[in-house]
């Protein structure tokens, strides 16, 4: 881990109230990111990745959702205690976020230029020609050709990759110290995906920005992340440096996820059926005591179904599994 954490999330819990009672969507999530570092968060849909991101920005839909416990320390300041105006100042200014769907993340009735200018006006007070100049600079920074022209275009005139670049330009407008990218390339094809990753890496390097990359793509993690947190059922089940986690996965879920990545190197003739993790992510309403993964885990033992294992840490590699009792205190 490099230096002081920029953002550290401690024991974050989010609950949703519904017809069937209260569901714990996040259950004691702890994470940290340092400046200049990339933290990857992986997990299947419904494991709580995006909810973690929303909770950090205090954007959990409330009601029905509620952040019920934990701390989100951004440079030592607990965001969960911050006032609403303070939060508005942080969003987009200190912490930015980009979304999965560039097709729908831009407002269709305004030009992309107007939308970038809006952020500049909101946080930096830039207006008119100054805002326009800065926006065009930002568009150039994200490698949009003919930026002056694109400034006056509407989102529907841009391709998916272009729109994601515009989203990144918007997110970068105030030079935030932390960027949360929620599946930024899922909706794009692979070549564009590589370009977007290159761009993110470049910007991160130039600005020493912390990056949280949320994805379900192990390949993207391997390529981008310094450290990785594996989430399942609203918990971080394993966390460590990318190399450690990918090379020596400890949690059965992590092993399963890695096994699911198709291997392009194998002979074309001998095709194997793709590996899969049996079953689906349990609904948040069905989470019982014990490890949320127990029902799908082929290594499950008796305690897995009765209580949640505590985190075991060795050399910065953290895992929560009853099968790893070795270093348990």
């Amino acid at each position: 881990m490099a230096g002081e954490p920029l953002l550290s999330v401690e024991g974050l819990c989010v609950e949703f109230k519904g017809a069937r009672g209260i569901a714990r969507v996040l259950n004691g999530v702890s994470l940290s990111v340092a400046a200049g570092e990339t933290l990857g968060i992986v997990g299947e849909s419904g494991s709580g990745k995006s909810m973690t991101a929303l909770a950090v920005l205090r954007l959990v839909p409330d009601p029905p959702g509620r952040i019920s416990a934990g701390r989100v320390l951004f440079r030592g300041e607990d965001l969960l205690q911050a006032s609403t105006p303070r939060m508005r100042d942080i969003r987009g200014n200190k912490i930015s976020m980009i979304f999965q769907e560039p097709m729908t993340s831009l407002n269709p009735v305004f030009t992309v230029g107007a939308q970038i200018c809006e952020t500049l006006t909101l946080h930096l007070g830039l207006r008119g020609e100054a805002a326009r100049r800065r926006s065009i600079e930002l568009l150039k920074d994200v490698r949009i050709p003919a930026a002056e022209q694109r400034f006056d275009e509407y989102p529907h005139q841009l391709s998916g990759g272009m729109r994601q670049r515009v989203m990144i330009a918007m997110a970068m407008a105030c030079e935030p110290s932390l960027l949360i990218a929620d599946e930024p390339t899922t909706a794009l094809d692979v070549t564009v995906q590589a370009q977007i990753f290159d761009l993110l890496r470049e910007i991160q390097k130039a600005r020493g920005m912390g990056l949280i990359l949320i994805t379900h793509d192990m390949g993207a993690i391997a390529e981008m992340a310094d450290r990785v947190a594996v989430m399942y059922g609203g918990r971080v089940v394993e966390e460590g440096t990318t190399r450690d986690v990918l090379d020596h996965p400890q949690h059965p879920y992590t092993k399963g996820l890695i096994a699911c990545v198709p291997d392009l190197d194998q002979e074309v003739g001998e095709r194997h059926a793709l590996t899969e993790i049996p079953g689906v992510v349990p609904s948040v309403w069905d989470l019982q005591q014990g490890c949320p993964f127990a029902d799908r885990c082929d290594e499950a033992i008796a305690p897995c179904r009765t209580s949640m294992p505590a985190d075991v840490v060795s050399n910065g590699h953290r895992v929560a599994c009853w099968q790893r009792p070795g270093e348990r205190a």
């Binding site: 969003r91 200014n93 979304f99 993340s105 831009l106 407002n107």
Partner: peptide, 26 residues
């Protein structure tokens, strides 16, 4: 529910702004 409304929150826009300047034009 659309993403650009969420994106607007993320950049720190106020509720009034989201209501009348983001959603209403659409």
């Amino acid at each position: 529910e659309l993403d650009f409304v969420a994106a607007e929150r993320v950049i720190g826009a106020s509720t009034g702004r989201i209501l009348w300047k983001v959603i209403l034009p659409n």
